[in-house]
């Protein structure tokens, strides 16, 4: 099997990310590893969104909902574990946990269910209405978490110990990075496979021409709903990892700014390109760190870059390097 350009580009970018971290480990720069971990988690959230936005043309400005649900799945389970209080005692006893695999599973399932419900309600609309209604759902969750005192309300929840994964010391930056990097690699692989699959072809048809899809006997709504659910699940997993990276969750994870940032990762890197969100998230974290040291207003520069990309390079940075995507064939 020969590798196509998108896959080759993906391997190069992933290798660059990994080399950066290995170099940082060798030279004793744990903070660089933490930054790379942050980028990997953002990239994972972006790949989730790219399934909906890039492949399916669903411009969701509410993906913070899934990122936040993933985050609070971690926050709620771990906070109960650290205070040794069960979540509920009736009808069955549910205890908190600080086992990462359990937290991930809960994060993925709950964000997928939320995406299924929100998708079922919002995917009847399209265009600007879809953007606004997903934004509205995001704000609903944001204000709900702000006003729910049981889990910290506005102040959020601090988790004092990083959750555990059997056989790893998750407090060691490079080991936690390894976990995030592994998930990112899996998500990237998933994206590339789905892109070439019957489902991917159908989803991109739903984005480009609904009437055509109906004429071959396929209902575009159901296709979009499945894609949106998958998208929410991936972004939810990223949320759980992000909460563990910071050992802190707050309603800010649900904010519209978070939704906007995930969209920015995708647009910077290239909408609908497998590696796009990884490139976008990498650039975002790089700018945040380098320019953030210079000025609190670093996002002015981000805005200018975003503007330049939207105006002059619609394919994002990936498009600048690789040109237009080729049709499979």
């Amino acid at each position: 099997m020969s590798l196509n350009r998108e896959t080759t580009a993906s391997l190069i970018v992933m290798a660059a990310l990994l080399s950066t971290v290995l170099w940082a480990e060798a030279t004793g720069e744990p903070f660089t590893i933490t930054l790379a971990t942050r980028a990997a988690i953002f990239a994972l959230a972006g790949i989730g969104l790219n399934l909906a936005l890039g492949m399916g043309g669903m411009v969701s400005l509410g993906h913070a909902v899934f990122f936040g649900i993933g985050g609070y799945a971690m926050g709620i389970l771990a906070s109960h574990a650290q205070t040794f209080t069960p979540l509920t005692t009736w009808p069955i006893l549910i205890e908190g946990t600080n086992a990462m695999p359990v937290i991930w599973l809960v994060a993925v399932i709950s964000s997928a269910l939320a995406a299924l419900a929100i998708g079922a309600l919002t995917l009847r609309t399209s265009g600007v209405y879809f953007i606004m209604i997903t934004l509205a759902f995001g704000q609903m969750f944001y204000y709900f978490m702000t006003g729910w005192p049981a889990y910290g309300g506005e102040d959020g929840l601090s988790i004092y110990v990083r959750n555990g994964f059997p056989g790893l010391n998750t407090l060691d930056p490079i080991q936690f990075f390894a976990i995030c990097f592994a998930f990112l690699a899996c998500a990237l692989w998933l994206y590339i496979r789905v892109d070439a699959s019957p489902f991917g072809l159908t989803l991109s048809a739903a984005r480009q021409n609904e009437a055509r899809l109906r004429a071959v006997g396929i209902d575009p709504f159901r296709i979009r709903l499945v894609a949106f659910t998958l998208s929410g699940a991936v972004t939810g997993l990223a949320g759980a990892l992000f909460a563990d990276l910071n050992r802190f969750v707050s309603p800010a994870m649900f904010s519209w700014q978070t939704s906007g940032e995930i969209v920015i990762f995708v647009i910077l890197g290239g909408v609908g390109r497998p590696i796009g969100p990884v490139v976008g998230a990498g650039l975002y974290v790089l700018l945040e760190h380098t320019l953030g040291d210079v000025s609190d207003y670093w996002q002015i520069v981000l805005g200018a870059i975003l503007l330049a990309i939207v105006l002059f390079a619609r394919g994002g940075l990936t498009g600048l390097v690789l040109g237009r995507p080729l049709p499979h064939g």
Partner: peptide, 10 residues
């Protein structure tokens, strides 16, 4: 068969 995620369409 639109709900096949891992096989290659072509």
């Amino acid at each position: 068969q639109p709900y096949r995620f891992f096989s290659r369409a072509l």
